[in-house]
Amino acid sequence: MHFEWASTYGHVLLQGLLITIELLLLSGFFGFLLALLVGFGRLSKQPVIAWLSLSFTNLIRGTPLLVQIYVLYYGVGSLFVGFPAVRDSFLWPYLREGFWYVVVALTLSVGGYVGEVIKGGLRGVPKGELEAARALGMSRLLMIRRIWLPRAIQILLPSLAGESVGLLKSTALASTVAVMDVLGAANLVRAQTFRTYEPLLVIAITYLVLALLIERVFRRLELRIPVRGAL
């Protein structure tokens, strides 16, 4: 084991860590919003909305995330170069960065997987509570905001913790499209110093610590919501 490269490449790994955390937070946030839409869409009584939501879920869950990233990055992304209007627009600096393609791909992925989880949670809220809300004259939106969604999320917190850790690990795919996340940084160290195991070991521990932190945050959230002793 040699770690003398750490002094020269330490900042590369730290920048990689920052990129990984940015990927996690951005796609986690937007993905969750999308998942809410998908979750409610799956329960919609409108056949078109229900069908669209189901198709989206099937599409996202039925294809590998790596393939989705490649389709977006090498497929859609390489079409833009043919349009001078796009090239000269203010969007170009974003459209040429692999980072944003990965954010979009991860957001869609979270939307698909967590959407299905949320659908399950929404179904899991006892009917009586919703009937009580309706009996009190709550509008549908108010009922969703006050009762249905908070109760569903409360039920789902353990699953959401798992999905978040899964998302963290999915961010490692960013390195396949030349994004310098933690894994990309480790690959760079490997390529330039011919040291293989040490950088990989360092980032494995980094991912582990991040995963434990995520679990912690969710544990906190679970404890914050008072639950009556017995069900």
Partner: peptide, 18 residues
């Protein structure tokens, strides 16, 4: 400086203007 694992990936990104 952007580092690529293979020359093919680099070629694709130069062609795509990235």
């Amino acid at each position: 400086i952007k580092y690529y694992n293979t020359q093919d990936e680099l070629n694709a990104d130069v062609a795509a203007g990235r």
